Simulated assay, not measured.
Amino acid sequence: MTTLKVKIESLEQTMATAADAMKAAASQTVPVTEFSLSFPSWDALHKVLTPKRLEIVKTMTGQGALTKREVARRVGRDFKAVHADIDTLVKAGVIDTVQDGVMFPYERIHFEFEIESAA
């Protein structure tokens, strides 16, 4: 099962995680089944993964390639708004553009982050 792990972490943490993943991939013949997407803050995460965009992702999960128009139909929203949301998700690396439209290439999303006190 392929998983997209969404994290809140600093650039330094992201780079260290990427370096560890490259080392592990180089030493193993087992295919990678977990991919990560990092955001520098809670606010940055929520700018990309709004509730309506998460609904798009959920609707696309396990469906293969879909046209933007079909995604809009499935979520019951205006095409123009869904088109803009899909463009944001593509730019953020959450979904992929493919020949037949767009696709969420994972079977699930796992959110991993901690919230600390502001003081």
Rank of each mutant, 00 (worst) to 15 (best):
V32R: 15
T14K: 15
A44P: 04
D85G: 15
R69F: 04
P105F: 09
H83M: 09
T61V: 08
P31I: 10
A44D: 06
E55A: 15
V32K: 12
Y106T: 02
R77H: 06
T14E: 11
A21C: 05
L45I: 01
F39L: 01
G101P: 08
V48Q: 10
V98R: 15
R53K: 14
F104T: 04
S117A: 10
V90M: 05
V102G: 08
T3I: 15
V82R: 12
A118D: 07
V71S: 00
T3R: 15
L66Q: 14
T3E: 14
S36W: 01
V90G: 02
P40I: 03
T50G: 02
L54F: 09
T61R: 15
A84L: 15
V75F: 11
K91H: 08
D43R: 10
D20P: 08
E34S: 06
H110V: 14
E12G: 12
V90L: 05
H46M: 02
M15E: 12
S41N: 01
V82C: 00
E9N: 14
K7W: 01
E9F: 11
M22I: 09
S41E: 02
T29W: 12
V30W: 03
E107W: 05
G101T: 05
F111K: 11
V102H: 09
E55V: 04
K52S: 11
